[in-house]
Amino acid sequence: MEVPWTRDVPTAGSPVWERLARLVDQRGLLLHGSRTPGLATLEPAAPLDRGPDVYSKSTAVFATEDPTWAMGYALRDESCLRLLNACFHPLAADGSWGPRRIFLSYARPASGTPPLSRGVVYAVPRGPFTRMPPHDDPALGSIVECQWIATDPVPVMVEIVVEPLDMPFAVRTHDHDRVSAAMDADPSGFPWLDA
Rank of each mutant, 00 (worst) to 15 (best):
D137Y: 09
L165M: 08
L84I: 09
A170T: 05
E2H: 15
D49H: 14
A181F: 08
L75K: 02
E2R: 13
L84T: 06
A40H: 09
C146I: 06
D136Q: 15
T173E: 01
G98K: 03
V121P: 01
F129M: 08
P155M: 05
A150W: 04
P109A: 04
V16P: 01
K57C: 10
A93D: 15
G98N: 01
A12H: 12
D166F: 00
P134Q: 10
D94Y: 07
L48R: 14
D177M: 02
G141K: 00
V24N: 02
D166V: 04
P187D: 12
M183K: 09
E159D: 05
R172C: 08
D77L: 00
V158H: 09
S14D: 03
A110C: 02
A185G: 13
P128C: 08
R50S: 15
H32R: 03
Q26R: 09
P44M: 04
R19Y: 03
P15N: 09
P155H: 05
F129Y: 11
L81P: 00
P164R: 00
V179N: 04
A21T: 12
Q26E: 15
G28A: 04
P115H: 01
V158E: 13
S188M: 14
V24R: 02
W192G: 03
W148V: 06
H176S: 02
T113A: 12
H135N: 12
A40Q: 11
R50G: 14
Y55W: 13
R27Q: 09
V120L: 03
P155C: 08
A63N: 07
G72W: 01
W69C: 13
D166R: 00
P90A: 07
T59K: 13
D152E: 13
L31C: 04
V162N: 01
P128Q: 11
S105H: 02
R131A: 14
L30F: 10
W69M: 14
T151Q: 11
P52G: 11
T64W: 06
L165T: 10
D186A: 15
V154E: 10
E43M: 09
P138Q: 11
E43P: 02
S56H: 15
G98D: 01
L48H: 13
I143V: 12
P191A: 09
F129P: 09
S105Q: 03
S58I: 06
P47S: 10
W148A: 08
G13Q: 10
P138H: 11
G119Q: 00
V154F: 12
I143K: 01
V121S: 00
F88Y: 14
D152L: 11
A60P: 04
F190I: 10
L75R: 04
L104R: 03
R126Q: 13
V154T: 10
